[in-house]
Amino acid sequence: MTAAPASFTRRTPVRERLVEAFLALSAAIGILTTVGIVAVLVFEAVEFFREVPLLEYLTGTVWSASIKPFRFGVLPLVTGTLLVAGLALLIAIPLGLVSGIYLAEYASPRIRTVLKPLLELIAGIPTVVLGFFAINFISPILLKSLVPGIGGFSVLAGGIVVGILVTPLIASLSEDALRAVPRSLREGAFAMGATKFEVVRRVVVPAALSGIMASIILAMSRAVGETMAVVLAVGANPQLTLDIRESVQTMTAFIVQISLGDTPAGSLQFKALFAVGATLFLMTLALNLLSDRVVARFRNRY
C-alpha cells in the first residue's frame, strides 16, 4: 500500500479537533453562565446573611431598606410578587386557555394565519411599553373610573398588565399541546356521537392537560420574574397587604430601585439586592423545574 499524502492523514485531524474543541467550548458557555449566576448570587447573598440572620430575612414582615431603622424581612416583597403574579394568572389562565382552544380546535386556517401573528405581536411588546400602558391608561383611565379608592399605583394595575403579558404564552403553549393530541382520539369521540364541544371538553383538553399545566407554570414563572411593567404599575411601597388596590413592591421592583439610586457597592442595601435576586432565582428555578416535571410525568404517549 502506498502511503496517503501526509497532509491527508496527519493535518486534517488536528484541524478537525481544533474546530470541535471550539464548538464544544461555545456549547459550554451555557453551563458557565449557570454556574456563574449561582456563584455570584450565593457569594454575595452569604455576605448579606452574615449581617442579617437568614431566619429574620425569611420570616420578617417589615422591609425597610432605605429608611432607618433598616429592616430586612422579605415577606412583604414575596407576598407583593405573588399577589401580582396570582392576579395576572387569574386573568391569563381563562383568557389564554380559551384562546388556545379556539386557535387549535375552532379557528379556520384563514383566521389562524391572521390571529397567530397578532398574538405574537402582543407577546413581543417590550415590557416597559406595557408599564407605560399601565401608568398612562389602565390606572388613570380604566381603574380610576371602575374601582373606588384606587391609587395611581396598585397591585390590580400590575396584575392586569402582567396578565396581558403572559396570556399569549399560555395561549400558544396550550395550543401546541392541544394540536399534539392525535386525530384518532377526536374521531373516536365523534363516532360515539359526541358534539364538537363534548369532544373538546371531555377528550382533547384532558389529553393535553400536562402541556396546559406546564404552560400555566411557565406563565407563573414569567410573571414572578417580570420587572419593568411591574415597577411602573405597582410602585415601590413594600407592605404586607392583601388589598389589591394598594401599592406594594415586588422583588424585581426592589432590585430596580436599589440599582437606580446611588447605593454604594458594599453597603447592606447593595448586598440585599443579591439576597433578593437569589430568592427570585430560586423561585423561578423551582417553577421551571416543576413545569419540566409535569410535562415528563403526566405526558400521555400515543
Binding site: 453562565t33 449566576i37 420574574g225 421551571n288
Partner: peptide, 21 residues
C-alpha cells in the same frame, strides 16, 4: 443532555437576574 437541558433552563431565568450577573 445536561448541556441541552441547561440551555432551556437558562431561557427561563428572569432577565433581571442576568443583570445582577
Amino acid at each position: 443532555r445536561l448541556l441541552r437541558t441547561n440551555i432551556s433552563n437558562l431561557a427561563g431565568v428572569p432577565s433581571i437576574v442576568y443583570g445582577i450577573f
